[in-house]
Structures are given as structure tokens and as C-alpha cells.
């Protein structure tokens, strides 16, 4: 069967593919933000600083560091040097920094609800050291920022995807418009609304599926390039390790969503054409 207006349909295909590309890119970006935020959360919760209050002087810091090596939740501990402090504060290494009573500690993964700071302070107190823990994970003071960013990225991508679905749906109405004569003929021949609209919707859904797949392929390729350019340890061989199955979920969702949105848009339009053709008076 010869297809008329293939040029117009090709343009429609690419319009749908562009919308699918945008939605898939947003989905992949959301996954990237999610992973960066998750890593940030892990890094943040695995690090803390202990400030030694008593005994004062180098001995107090050395004793605290020794106790911390075997304290609960602590993986490793190291007194903060003046050079390290200068680097953290963004100052010149030669800057005049007073003697520090700070110890950097790496924490092991603790069960939720654990009082990490309290346990460390108690362990130090048993060894005769008074100290406070700065930046140990708890539910206040900025903790959960990563979670909020992850939520924002997820729902942002969903919202953007829905807007793109709306665009796909309205574009598919254009296809139904081009099939109006078919709907009219089918109606005249006794097709029910479901039959006439179903035929047009099937065609639109197939177009949406292929356009969605094309858009997702482009977004996926762009995503791979972005990973290779921005991740230090990335290489073509390392990609299967770097990309998790969940990262591909936006691509699958957008491909399927394009087909559904196109089908729904075309079906709605075709049903209204059928209604008008069925009753001219």
C-alpha cells in the first residue's frame, strides 16, 4: 500500500523523536544526579572531625588518635596537619595556622539510628579524653540534602517527561488529522468508534514506539559520551561496570511512554472525527 504524505509523516516522526530525546535526556540526567547525590551522602556520612578539648596539647591529640583507632564506628583516624587545614580552608600552605586539636576520622557504615557521635565521645571519655565530634551523621544540620536533591531530580524528570508526553500526544493528533478521510470512510461503512479510532491509534502508537526508540538511542549515545568525558576512570571496557540496569530505566520508560502517549492522542482525535462523521445533523 502506497503511503501518501510520507514527508509530513517523517517530520512528525522526528518531532516525536525529539520530544522522546528530551524526556530520555532528562531521565538520564536525573539518574546521574541521583548517583552523584548518593555518593555525596555516602562520603558525607563516612567522614567526621573530632575536636579534642582535654587534655590540651600534642599529648591529648595523640591519645585521642590512639583511642579512636579502636573506637566503635571508626575505620581510621589521623590528626589534621596544618597543611591539610590550609588546604581545606583554601589558604596558602605557608599561612600562619595555630596548632590544631583536630582529628579526621573515616567512619564505617553504621546501622540507621546509631548514635555515632555519642558512641565515639563515650569511647574517648573512657580513655580520659574529652572531645566533641563535628560532622558525624545525624538528622540535622544539612543531613539528608542528598536525599532531597535525589527526590527533586526524580520528580523533575517525571514532570518534564509528562510535559513531553503531552507534546507527543498533541503531535499524534496531527497524524489522526491526516487519517480523517479513513475515519470518515470507516464510519460510513459502519465501523464503531473503537474500530475506527483503534486503527489510527495503532498506527500512531507504532510511530510513537519507533520515534521513542530513536530519541532514546540518541539520548543514550549522548549519555555514554558524557560518561566517557566526565568520569575519570571511564573507558569503553569499564562502561558495563559503570552503568547499572536501573540507569536504563528512563530509556525503556520513555520508549513505552511515547507509544502510549501517541496512541492516546491519536485515539482521542479519531474518536471525535468518528462522532462527527457518524452524525452529520
Amino acid at each position: 500500500m502506497k503511503r501518501a504524505g510520507a514527508g509530513v509523516e517523517r517530520a512528525l516522526f522526528w518531532a516525536l523523536a525529539l520530544a522522546a530525546f528530551a524526556a530520555a535526556a532528562a531521565g538520564l540526567l536525573s539518574r546521574a544526579i541521583d548517583r552523584v547525590a548518593a555518593n555525596y551522602d555516602i562520603g558525607r556520612s563516612a567522614y567526621a572531625i573530632v575536636r579534642v578539648i582535654a587534655p590540651e596539647g600534642h599529648d591529648g591529640v595523640a591519645r585521642a588518635a590512639a583511642i579512636l583507632q579502636s573506637a566503635p564506628h571508626v575505620d581510621s583516624a589521623a590528626p589534621m596537619t596544618a597543611g591539610r587545614a590550609a588546604a581545606l580552608l583554601g589558604m596558602e600552605a605557608s599561612a600562619d595556622i595555630p596548632a590544631l586539636r583536630l582529628i579526621e576520622i573515616e567512619l564505617v557504615q553504621s546501622p540507621p539510628g546509631a548514635d555515632v557521635a555519642g558512641d565515639i565521645i563515650a569511647a574517648l571519655a573512657q580513655g580520659g579524653v574529652t572531645a566533641e565530634v563535628v560532622g558525624a551523621p545525624d538528622d540535622s544540620g544539612g543531613a539528608g540534602l542528598g536525599g532531597r536533591i535525589r527526590n527533586l531530580a526524580f520528580w523533575g524528570a517525571i514532570g518534564f517527561g509528562l510535559i513531553m508526553a503531552l507534546i507527543v500526544s498533541f503531535s499524534a493528533r496531527g497524524l489522526a488529522g491526516r487519517r480523517r478521510e479513513m475515519v470518515t470512510v470507516m464510519t460510513d461503512l459502519g465501523a464503531t468508534g473503537a474500530q475506527a479510532a483503534g486503527r489510527v491509534a495503532d498506527e500512531a502508537a507504532m510511530l510513537g514506539l519507533f520515534a521513542g526508540a530513536a530519541g532514546c538511542a540518541l539520548a543514550g549515545a549522548l549519555g555514554v559520551v558524557a560518561i566517557l568525558l566526565t568520569t575519570p576512570e571511564a573507558s569503553p571496557e569499564a562502561l558495563p561496570r559503570l552503568i547499572r540496569p536501573l540507569d536504563l530505566a528512563p530509556l525503556a520508560a520513555v520508549t513505552l511512554g511515547s507509544a502510549i502517549a501517541a496512541g492516546i492522542g491519536a485515539r482521542t482525535a479519531a474518536l471525535s472525527f468518528h462522532e462527527r462523521a457518524a452524525k452529520i445533523g
Binding site: 500500500m1 501518501a4 478521510e181 470518515t184 460510513d188 459502519g190 465501523a191 464503531t192 457518524a278
Partner: peptide, 23 residues
Amino acid sequence: PKMRALVKRRIGYVAENPVFIEH
């Protein structure tokens, strides 16, 4: 509407200006 469609299917109609799927 469904019954009307079913009845229409049993009617052969030649319009004054017949509409076809042109391609």
C-alpha cells in the same frame, strides 16, 4: 451508537461525492 454502526454495516451507500482513502 454501536447498534447504529452495526446497522450501517448492512447498508451499502453510494454517496453523491464518494469519499475514499485516496492513496
